[in-house]
Design a protein around this nucleic acid. Structure first.
Lengths: 347, 347
DNA sequence: AGAAATTGCGCAATCGGTTGCATCTTTCGG
DNA sequence: CCGAAAGATGCAACCGATTGCGCAATTTCT
């Protein structure tokens, strides 16, 4: 088998054609199951291809087809449970259809996001999926894609745009439910810890929070909204600030779990009892939400599923199965999961 | 600018050549900074390329060069803090050198691992990096790569093999240190919770554990070693089993943090005090290790750094900068981080 | 000045698969 | 038995970048 140097030569459709005394064109068509090639010929070709271990050379095909069979993915950070779940979902879905993934992280910086987008553009990805950085306020750095009509899908952290499709959850509703839940537990002074209001997810969550307050005739106060970077450390720091308030809040709705947990830890260290004194609701259902004691009430939604949906949508679009409809927004399901951190009643 | 349909034509070296009335060969060479092209010509070419926004077509080049500029990565799972850090490290490093990543997860199954390897092989990745699944016991499914002399690097979960390079930490030493630390805290009956002994990491950790016991003249007992899948749930379940033992252990060394945490939670629910009754040491320094109360003592080592090292090594190898040396094993640093979960003394 | 060496660039083939059009063969109705 | 339609395959150009070889122009050396 081996020819001494261990580098077995790659066999091509030309080799197969020669062995079978037919033309490469016929081999190519047979391999694609072209209807104009007879079953007999196809079988001969398939059998030989199998025998000699033929592998299609994507590059030759892609060069010809002017497609890369590659999809770019830009996420704020790779090492978050939610994002890696999304990526797992995307990977699974698009791989089934012969696409590869080019993955890159913006580290929550619009500059790196633009760099990555540029790199992806130069790599000529067939499509792009992105979840925006905290400080992304325009989509200018995606213009190249729009102009070239390369499909772009935004997920989770999206920005309304006529050139791209968005996949997200109903953040307004989820935040409304979370806040309402706190109110039902008897909370009267509810804080909201969130990120800069550049991104839809945080704006919508704030709006949902407000709306639930209003409905319960609780007054919304600007100084009950705390803007942070939502890291666990930030949550911890905010705890100190909260402790200095003249009157402690009795409920806090945080826009993600790790920040919520940091804050809880900060408060508990100072002897605050949760949920008795302060009830907590987070967002994301991160695995840590069940490690903290008391376990954290949160909004659950599946990153994996979001990835699958995004992948399927893009693949269908690229295959032409699904007609392009750029105005589409897809809203996925999310659920409030009640745990001890907010259960003031049946404590 | 736009030509109506929004699809601006890609410009090629032929377009540049035509505009400059020179040959495409000269353009190609100039773009590569070939010494035989005069500085004047180069400047003209670069300027025009810049002006018209020339983008090199990787596919044409790769087809010609018979390289893919793609590196395959197979990990047990994407959504673990450690693995996503590794991937972030790899991505950063290889991207700088023009390589893309093809990522896939085995879900801890050797079958999927083999499938992924096959897929990567067919995609003709220039190199492969892999961390093995729990039940991988041979490297047969990587034989294709070895035969073809495609470089393969194993990281963290490795298997000694003359055809591949391994990157890992000194698991023996780390486990020894962890166990010794427990002994120094006064533990006499120390359990070890780990995974099936197929993988080096778990075998070495067990050996380190044994060795520390021996050194302290503590007898090693088979029934003090518990084999699980190291999930958080598994840890929780084992807690129940441990509670049924005639005498409780006073220390537990667990081969990863999430399992340790599951076990701690199981014990604490039943009123066991940690570390007073049972001290804990985990492995990996996962973010959850600082969320659990008491915070978990653990072995820290940087996935990001491991990814960087692996990436750099592979890239150098592929560029021919670093001569091939297949017998190489690279050992990275790891440290014991002491936190409350094991501090019996200054509690 | 004439030969030799160096510099600067172009020709054309190559990588492997795809596809519009042409060509050849078979089949079938009349 | 003839011609047309359908069926099966081949020809050759193409996708875009690379590179060995060759040729011409310029410089250097004796």
């Amino acid at each position: 088998m081996a020819n001494g140097n261990g580098n077995e030569k790659e066999i091509t459709i030309y080799d197969i054609a020669k062995r079978l005394k037919i033309s490469p064109a016929t081999v190519s068509r047979a391999l694609q199951d072209h209807p104009r090639i007879s079953a007999k010929t196809k079988k001969k070709i398939f059998d030989l291809a199998d025998e000699v271990g033929y592998r299609r050379n994507h590059f030759a095909g892609n060069l010809r087809a002017q497609k890369t069979q590659t999809i770019g993915v830009i996420v704020p950070r790779l090492n978050s449970h939610f994002m890696s779940s999304v990526i797992a979902g995307i990977e699974l879905t698009v791989n089934e259809h012969g696409y590869s993934l080019l993955i890159s992280q913006s580290s929550e910086s619009v500059l790196k996001e633009a760099d990555s987008a540029e790199a992806m553009f130069n790599s000529r990805v067939d499509g792009l999926m992105a979840s925006l950085a905290y400080d992304t306020s325009t989509l200018d750095h995606f213009d190249k894609f729009f102009r070239k009509k390369t499909p772009v899908i935004f997920f989770d952290r999206v920005m309304p745009n006529k050139n791209a499709t968005s996949i997200l959850i109903d953040n307004y509703r989820a935040a409304y439910d979370a806040t309402k839940h706190l109110i039902e537990q008897g909370c009267k002074k509810i804080l909201h810890i969130t990120a800069p209001q550049m991104q839809n997810v945080y704006r919508d969550r704030l709006a949902g929070y407000k709306s639930a307050l209003e409905e319960a005739k609780l007054k919304f106060r600007e100084d009950h909204v705390i803007i942070t970077n939502l890291s666990q450390e930030a949550g911890y720091e905010q705890a100190a600030r909260i402790l200095k308030m003249k009157s402690l809040p009795d409920g806090i709705f945080v826009a993600n779990d790790s920040c919520a947990i940091g804050c809880m830890m900060g408060l508990m260290e100072k002897g605050i009892r949760i949920p008795e004194q302060v009830a907590f609701v987070g967002f994301n259902n991160d695995p840590v939400s069940t490690v903290i004691d008391p376990k954290l009430t949160t909004i659950a939604y599946s990153g994996f599923e979001m990835g699958e949906v995004a992948g399927r949508l893009l693949v269908n679009h690229l295959n032409g199965t699904l007609p392009i409809n750029n105005t589409t927004t897809i809203v996925l399901r999310s659920d409030l999961i009640v745990r001890q951190s907010s259960m003031k009643n049946q404590g």
